[in-house]
C-alpha cells in the first residue's frame, strides 16, 4: 500500500518541484529587471512599475491564477460576442488582439500556473532586490567608476555580490513561502502533490497520504532552510 501511494504521489511531487524550480528560474531574473524599473530615473516607468508591483503584491496569488487562466478565454468570448457594426477603427484591431490572445489562452493549465507564479514571485523578489540595491553606499559605485570600470562591471562585480549577501535572509523566507504556495496550482486543476493525496480520501477514506505530503513539505522546506543557513555562513567571511 505504502509503495503504491508513494508511486502515485510521486507524480504530484514532481509537479510541485517543477513549479518551484521553474518559478525560481524565471522569477529571479525578472525580479531583478522589475527592481530596475521601480528604481528608474524616468518617473513614468518608475510609477507604472510600482503600481504593477503594488497590484500583484496586494492581491492573492489564487485570484491571479484564476484570472490568468480564465481571463483571456472570457475576453475572447466577449470579443466574439460583440456586434459587428461596432467594429470601427479602434475596436477592430482590439478585437483581433483579444482573439489572438484568447486563441493561445484556452491554454495549457501548466503554462498559466507558470505565468502567474513567475509574475507574482518576480514582484516580491523585485522589492527584495530593490532594498538590497538601495542599501549599497554610493561610494562603492564611485570607487568602481574611478578605477575605470563600466557601469555593468560595477553592477555585476561590485554591487550585486554585496546585494546577494544582504538579501539572503528575506529571500530564504520568500522561497520557503513559494514551496507552500505551489499547492495553489490546484485551483486551476494542475495536479500537485496535495491533490494527488486527496484522491485517496475520496476513493477509500485514507487520510495518511495527506500527512505524507505534509512530511514532504517539511522535508523540502527543511532542506532549503539548511541550504540558506549554509549560504549565509559561506558569505559571512566579511561584513561591510
Amino acid at each position: 500500500m505504502f509503495m503504491s501511494v508513494t508511486a502515485s504521489l510521486a507524480e504530484g511531487f514532481l509537479m510541485t518541484l517543477k513549479i518551484f524550480g521553474l518559478t525560481l528560474l524565471f522569477a529571479l531574473p525578472l525580479g531583478l529587471i522589475i527592481s530596475f524599473g521601480s528604481m528608474s530615473k524616468v518617473r513614468i516607468i518608475k510609477w507604472i512599475v510600482k503600481a504593477f508591483v503594488w497590484i500583484i503584491r496586494g492581491t492573492p496569488l489564487m485570484l491571479q491564477l484564476i484570472i490568468i487562466y480564465y481571463g483571456p478565454g472570457l475576453a475572447g468570448e466577449w470579443a466574439k460576442a460583440m456586434p459587428a457594426e461596432e467594429f470601427n477603427a479602434i475596436i477592430l484591431p482590439l478585437r483581433y488582439i483579444v482573439a489572438w490572445v484568447s486563441s493561445w489562452s484556452v491554454f495549457d493549465r501548466f503554462i498559466a500556473v507558470m505565468i502567474a507564479f513567475t509574475i507574482n514571485y518576480a514582484c516580491y523578489f523585485s522589492e527584495i532586490f530593490r532594498g538590497g540595491i538601495e542599501g549599497i553606499p554610493k561610494g562603492q559605485y564611485e570607487a568602481g567608476y574611478v578605477l575605470g570600470m563600466k557601469k555593468s562591471q560595477v553592477f555585476f562585480k561590485i554591487v550585486l555580490p554585496q546585494v546577494i549577501k544582504r538579501i539572503i535572509p528575506p529571500m530564504s523566507n520568500e522561497i520557503i513561502t513559494l514551496v507552500k504556495d505551489t499547492s495553489l496550482a490546484r485551483v486551476i486543476a494542475v495536479y500537485e502533490v496535495i491533490w494527488s493525496a486527496q484522491v485517496y480520501i475520496k476513493r477509500g477514506g485514507l487520510i495518511w497520504p495527506l500527512f505524507y505530503t505534509g512530511v514532504f513539505y517539511l522535508l523540502f522546506s527543511g532542506i532549503l532552510t539548511l541550504l540558506f543557513g549554509w549560504i549565509e555562513k559561506k558569505l559571512d567571511y566579511y561584513h561591510s
Binding site: G139, Q140, E142, M149, K165
Partner: peptide, 24 residues
C-alpha cells in the same frame, strides 16, 4: 576617498587587482 570605499566582499589583494585585470 575620505571613506576609503574599499570593496568589502573582496580581499585586499582582490581589491587591488580587480581593475587592472578587468579594465586593463
Amino acid at each position: 576617498f575620505q571613506q576609503f570605499n574599499l570593496f568589502p566582499h573582496k580581499s585586499v589583494l582582490q581589491n587591488i587587482i580587480e581593475a587592472p585585470v578587468c579594465v586593463n
